[in-house]
């Protein structure tokens, strides 16, 4: 079944998912954010479908010591966890950005060829 029909929805989800960590790092690079800020940032750019996906990723980025957090008071309710990049996180983000730029340029040139031929 899976082999016969190309699962478009799954392919898009996979594409988004593999970029999501990069996007989270990018979002947090602006400054200290708490989970809901990150979510609204990602949702605005239509990068995340279900919110629950964020949490295990945050947990992992933290255990890989790319992120760290501190508790801050909030006017609206209980204290919140504010995330920021660690030095390691900043370096990783630079590497990933470089990779992304290389990828986009090569993919863009592929797309141009494709458009020319059609």
């Amino acid at each position: 079944m899976d082999n016969k029909i190309f699962d478009m929805e799954n392919a898009r989800a996979q594409m988004r998912k593999s970029l999501l960590e990069y996007c989270i790092l990018l979002a947090i690079s602006q400054g200290e954010l708490y989970a809901s800020d990150i979510l609204s940032e990602l949702k605005a750019d239509n990068l995340i479908v279900v919110e629950g996906t964020l949490y295990p990723m945050l947990s992992r980025l933290k255990s890989d010591s790319l992120l760290e957090y501190s508790w801050k008071e909030s006017k609206a309710g209980p204290p919140r966890k504010y995330y920021r990049l660690t030095g390691e996180g900043k370096r990783t983000l630079e590497q990933l950005t470089l990779t992304w730029q290389e990828l986009t340029s090569s993919i863009n040139s592929l797309i141009k060829k494709y458009e020319k031929n059609n």
């Binding site: 799954n10 279900v50 919110e51 996906t53 992992r60």
Partner: peptide
């Protein structure tokens, strides 16, 4: 539906990633 069902969250699906 906003948060996602357990099977939609995180590493579900074919391409299980990190944690």
């Amino acid at each position: 539906s906003v948060m996602g069902r357990p099977d939609q969250i995180g590493e579900a699906g074919k391409n299980d990633s990190a944690p």
